[in-house]
Nucleic acid binder design. Structure first.
Length: 298
DNA sequence: ATCCAGGATGTAT
DNA sequence: ATACATCATGGA
């Protein structure tokens, strides 16, 4: 990697419960990070092994897990940012202690121990989960990279070019046709209109964060392309509502197979019942372990 | 070919 | 409030 980057490392022993960086960043909860060796732009893959990258507010941040440390390098002193984005202060032991004792839950925690809920920046999280509707995880990543390439500000670091996530203004100025050309499909107008809402101040992050869950869940659905499920994802993966339990097709199957009594016929009541069944205030953590576990079995 | 993917929206009832 | 058709796209 080029010189000029600030670097640091955090002993895993300082993180309550440690961390599994791969499970954290490849479990389909965040589309703001990518594997450095899978970049589709720029040249070279030297020294990229095991590194994950993101760009936040004009700064490149790279992170890599080694035997005993979480290493990082960035265009700024990014340790506080890393703590925030990866929720490194969360006490995983305490969270697991609150979780349901069922085998399928405990198997999920065993298999992916160290997975942390992320705290993605609001706008990228909002847009990425609008794009997630009826879409495979791998393609959601591709869509976000395409948005960065086409509408994001370029960041030059050494020989490489990185892209920030587009600003609300930049995406609001895109046309539906342009976004369809990036293979967003029917989500194209949702993305444009939601970006416009944020850009024009009709509804912004600060409006939304004035209230707590579940009121914020209700407010988020005012955005175009945001229903109850996507709203719960933004609550959990950006707004630190660890009790939010997004119900996607995998969770509906899990409820059907393992927690049939939680099925209440509609989203809100089923989600509420499932939250209590999984352990309450940290149910979103357990949900994400479950999601990753179920999606990877076989 | 048919079905499915971290669903949401518009319309009719 | 609830039921249903419709919405792009690519992989299995």
């Amino acid at each position: 990697m080029a010189n000029g980057l600030e670097r640091g490392s955090i002993p895993l022993s300082e993180l309550p419960g440690g961390i599994d960086l791969q499970a954290t960043l490849e479990s389909g909860q965040s589309y703001c990070w990518w594997r450095a060796d899978e970049r589709t732009y720029g040249a070279g893959t030297d020294g990229d092994d095991g590194w994950y990258e993101t760009v936040v507010d004009g700064d490149l941040l790279r992170a890599r897990q080694t035997d005993g440390e979480l290493r990082w390098e960035a265009t700024t002193d990014a340790e506080p940012l890393l703590y925030e984005l990866l929720r490194l202060d969360d006490d995983l032991e305490a969270i697991r202690a609150s979780a349901a004792a069922d085998d399928v839950v405990q198997d999920a925690y065993d298999n992916y121990w160290g997975l942390r809920i992320v705290a993605d920046p609001f706008f990228p999280c909002l847009i990425s989960f609008i794009c997630s509707a009826q879409m495979h995880v791998s393609r959601i990543f591709e869509m976000q990279m395409a948005l960065r390439r086409e509408y994001g500000e370029e960041i030059e670091v050494g020989e490489r070019t990185y892209y920030d996530f587009p600003t609300p203004d930049a995406l609001a100025a895109a046309t539906e046709e342009e976004l369809r050309d990036l293979n967003l499909g029917y989500r194209a107008p949702y993305v444009q209109r939601t970006a416009e809402m944020v850009s024009e101040g009709e509804l912004t992050e600060s409006d939304v964060t004035e209230t707590a869950y579940p009121a914020v869940r209700e407010e988020l659905t005012e955005f175009v392309g945001v229903g109850q499920k996507v709203s719960d994802c933004v609550c959990l993966f950006s707004l630190s509502c660890l009790e939010a339990v997004p119900l996607d097709t995998w969770m509906h199957t899990a409820i059907e197979e393992h927690f049939p009594k939680c099925e209440r016929g509609n989203y809100t009541d089923t989600s509420d019942a499932f939250r209590e069944r999984l352990g309450g205030e940290f149910a979103g953590y357990t949900q994400t372990y479950l999601f990753h576990h179920l999606r990877n079995e076989d």
